[in-house]
Computed example of a mutant assay.
Amino acid sequence: MTTSKTWFITGASQGLGLILANQLLAAGHRVAATSRHLTGLTQAIPADAATFLPLQVDLTDEASVAQAVQATISTFGRIDVVVNNAGYGQFGSIEELSDQETRQNFDINVFGLLNVLRHVSPHLRAQQSGQVFNISSIGGFFGNFPGWGIYCATKFAVEGLTEAYAAEMAGFGVKVTAVMPGYFRTNFLSAGSLATPHTSIAAYQDVRDSLTTHQEQINGQQPGDPAKAVALLIAMSEAPQPPLYLFLGADAYQLAAQKITAVQRDMQQWQSQATATDFAAEAI
């Protein structure tokens, strides 16, 4: 038997967040769920008010995030599990994307997540327990995707801050996991979740081809089952020692292994020269 917990989930009106919220409520957990639009959230999750708290939140507004966290504490008394799920894909080559487009992606995917961590951490520290899942992407570990550089950069940032956050919170009994899914069959590649560049450059044919492949071939045919993914997260929330790194999907494992092999190959090729760069030891 699992103990009923209070979950705080961002981006819960669609995709993994929505499926997770519904599975949790069906299992008897309490869920505080955020979305930019309250109506869409309440329509997507018509749950009992005793266990479900829908919250309209602008993740880029720190005051809005703080109010949502406080409302959750006031309603349910505590937060046991935090799932930073909100985010969107920004497609386009590095040269094509404007400063504004780039910053907007970081504002949601990175700084919005940081706003949540900043305001849940005092509560998790005080109760000396908790689990945080930061939903990243295999694109936060393997960035060799033409046209996905900015999105991957946001997810690489999530990976790095998650590692540091895990180290900072370990002494308070708080467990932290970076979740790196591969291709799962959600609406991530649809127009509402994937932004394309305002200005495109014809010279980047590989970028145009990548967008066509993702929208016309991969979208709707992703191998990952999101219901199985969130079921694993729920099970993992009960694990005594959840992993810091969770690659989700066979494709994520394959790409991670490919990256690790490439890094090891480059390290070995240049090891003798690269490790001979310290100051020379003084003769005694």
Rank of each mutant, 00 (worst) to 15 (best):
F141N: 03
S121F: 01
R125V: 06
Q104R: 10
Y151L: 10
V158T: 15
I201S: 06
L113S: 04
H198K: 15
T177S: 14
R185K: 15
F188R: 00
G149K: 08
W148F: 03
R185Q: 14
A157L: 00
R103P: 05
Q128E: 13
N144V: 13
D99N: 08
Q128F: 01
A202Y: 10
H198S: 15
G140K: 09
G147C: 09
I201E: 09
Q131H: 14
G182Q: 04
E159W: 09
L117M: 13
V120Q: 07
L117C: 14
F142Y: 14
F156A: 07
E168K: 13
A178Q: 00
L189V: 03
A157Y: 03
G173K: 11
F142N: 09
I135R: 01
N105S: 14
Q205P: 04
A153P: 05
H198W: 08
R103C: 08
F106A: 11
A191Q: 10
F188T: 06
F184E: 02
G171N: 12
P146L: 08
I94E: 07
L97A: 09
F172Y: 15
Y204G: 12
A170R: 12
A195M: 07
E101L: 03
A178R: 05
W148E: 03
I108N: 02
F141I: 12
I94C: 11
A166R: 03
F133N: 07
G143M: 08
L161F: 08
Q100V: 07
K175N: 11
F184L: 15
R103V: 03
N105V: 12
P181D: 08
L161R: 03
S93P: 00
N144Q: 15
G160Q: 05
A191W: 08
K175A: 11
G160L: 04
T162Y: 04
E163W: 12
I135Y: 02
V174E: 09
T102R: 15
E101C: 02
L117P: 06
L113I: 08
K155A: 02
N187E: 06
P146W: 11
H198V: 13
G147V: 04
I94N: 12
I138F: 01
A195S: 02
A153E: 02
L124M: 08
G192I: 02
A191K: 15
I94D: 10
F142L: 02
Y204C: 11
S193D: 05
A191I: 10
A166W: 05
Y151S: 05
G149Q: 06
Q131A: 10
A157I: 00
